[in-house]
């Protein structure tokens, strides 16, 4: 029996999120502090991952993996043959889609503003004086 899929933040979304606090010039990538992480296998679709590779910020993904304590898993750069490199695409799939951050926070690298993650949902709302 399949375990039910949880709706929790994965690193593909962390890779897109950036700080939008007033006055911040370089709010990317957000620093992950993870208090509770789980790994959950999901269906691997090489075509999809290959397409996403062109759209994600690879250095931010490798950094995100370091921040949650997963080192030595991803190559520093996207290999030239990434479209046909199945081992690489599997690693990328795991990093992007299979690591769930349940509790923790995302911190703006410039202002230090923390965006809490509770129950797998990051709260990106700002106060009136921050917009």
């Amino acid at each position: 029996m399949r375990l039910s899929a949880f709706v929790r933040m994965r690193l593909i979304t962390h890779n897109m999120l950036t700080s939008h606090v007033k006055g911040v010039k370089n709010g990317y990538p957000l620093v992950i502090k993870a208090e509770d992480i789980k790994e959950q296998e999901t269906d691997f679709n090489p075509d999809f991952i290959s397409r996403m590779i062109t759209r994600i910020e690879w250095p931010a993904l490798t950094k995100a993996m370091e921040m949650i304590g997963h080192t030595d898993q991803l190559p520093e750069e996207v290999p030239k043959d990434y479209e046909t490199n199945n081992d690489f695409l599997k690693q990328a799939h795991h990093a992007l889609m299979e690591i769930e951050v349940i509790t923790g926070s995302l911190t703006c690298p410039e202002s230090g503003r923390e965006f809490p993650i509770a129950n797998g949902i990051p709260n990106m709302l700002l106060n009136e004086d921050e917009v």
Binding site: S4, V7, L17, T42, P122, N123, M124, L125
Partner: peptide, 27 residues
Amino acid sequence: EAYELNNVVECIQADIARFSPSRNMIL
């Protein structure tokens, strides 16, 4: 979660009225 979907679904809490080309919360 009740649907036991095969694909990844996530959500974030954010104010869509706060999007602007210069200062986004999403690239």
